[in-house]
Simulated assay, not measured.
Amino acid sequence: MKTHFKTIIVSDIHLGTKGSKSKEIVRFLKLYHCENLILNGDIIDGWQLKKSGTWKRKHTRFFNRVIKMIDNQKTKVFYLRGNHDDFLDQILPLQIGNLSIQTDMIYESAGKKYFITHGDIFDSITTNLRWIAYLGDVGYTFLLWLNRIVNHYRFKRGLPYFSLSQYVKGKVKSAVSYIDQYETELAKMAKAKGCDGIICGHIHKAEKRIIDGVEYMNSGDWVETMSALAEDHEGNWQLIYYNEIDFKSIRDLRVSSFFAGEESPVIPLKQVSFDASDDELNPPAFRKL
């Protein structure tokens, strides 16, 4: 897998919250170059910033990195509005040079059309019963807080990371049913728009599969999963998990490539998975081999 892609899509970074993996996403974007960077919603968590969230320097560094990609690599950046950064409604649409801020978009590549949206517009709870959506946000924030405590003690005992929120999603039937329905409805929407695929985020569940002949892809999140969608120049899509990147091998390879005069080193991955089992509780980085 090379370091340069045609398009990279990330979503649900939730900058302004304690759970945001802002350092990791910056490190990720330093490794990978792309012609198009699509920030698919919930990049800034306006909901939490209004309540108990805190904006830190590490969150600003993310946007510094994006600006450098625009200036140094001529990357085109598309920032799509999510439900947690709905404050963008006040300025949409907006384009400044290679930066475009909009609600959603149609992306065409390799003879295919993809409808790209954060996904909250299809969530009737978020759009019609906003107070319930806020209540759900409070519950998820609490799970992340509890998750840090649980994994602090697991780490001390030499145990692998355990995602409490993913466990709850996998055990609560209504949550499983909601995710299935969410994915199916998005696939229907893509077909109705005459698109070959749908690309979204919102539910923090990285996925790549075919639903009724439509390519359904979800970029995951940068709170727990730390995943991104990447398209090569032949139009092939894949999920990349941050925790599966072998940074030591990359560093060694880049050193050897430098002395050999090579310009585009290859990044080895420990594992890139498209089909994770429904009952898998651990993120890809901690799978037992």
Rank of each mutant, 00 (worst) to 15 (best):
T3M: 06
H4P: 13
I9S: 04
I13S: 03
K18P: 13
S20Y: 05
K23F: 06
I25T: 10
V26S: 12
H33N: 12
C34A: 11
L37A: 01
I38E: 01
G41F: 05
L49E: 10
S52M: 09
K56C: 08
F62K: 04
M69K: 13
M69D: 03
I70M: 12
I70H: 12
V77C: 00
F78V: 12
F78R: 09
L80W: 10
R81C: 05
N83A: 10
D85C: 05
D86L: 05
L88H: 09
D89H: 02
I91Q: 12
L92T: 09
Q95N: 06
I96K: 14
G97Y: 07
N98A: 14
I101K: 11
A110Y: 01
G111Y: 04
I116Y: 03
T117N: 12
D120Y: 13
I121H: 08
N128T: 08
N128A: 11
L135Q: 08
V138W: 03
G139H: 10
Y140T: 09
Y140C: 08
L143S: 10
L146M: 07
N147S: 14
V150H: 01
H152E: 01
K156E: 15
R157Y: 01
G158D: 12
S163L: 02
G170N: 15
S174K: 05
S177F: 09
Y182K: 15
L186T: 07
A190N: 06
K191A: 13
A192S: 14
K193P: 02
D196T: 00
G197E: 10
G197L: 03
I198E: 03
K205P: 00
R209K: 15
I210L: 06
I210V: 15
D212K: 07
D221M: 02
D221K: 03
V223W: 00
V223G: 07
T225D: 04
A228V: 00
A230P: 05
E231R: 07
H233G: 14
H233F: 04
N236I: 10
W237H: 12
Q238G: 05
Y242M: 00
Y242W: 15
I250N: 06
D252C: 02
F258Q: 01
I267L: 13
D275C: 06
P284Q: 03
F286E: 07
R287E: 05
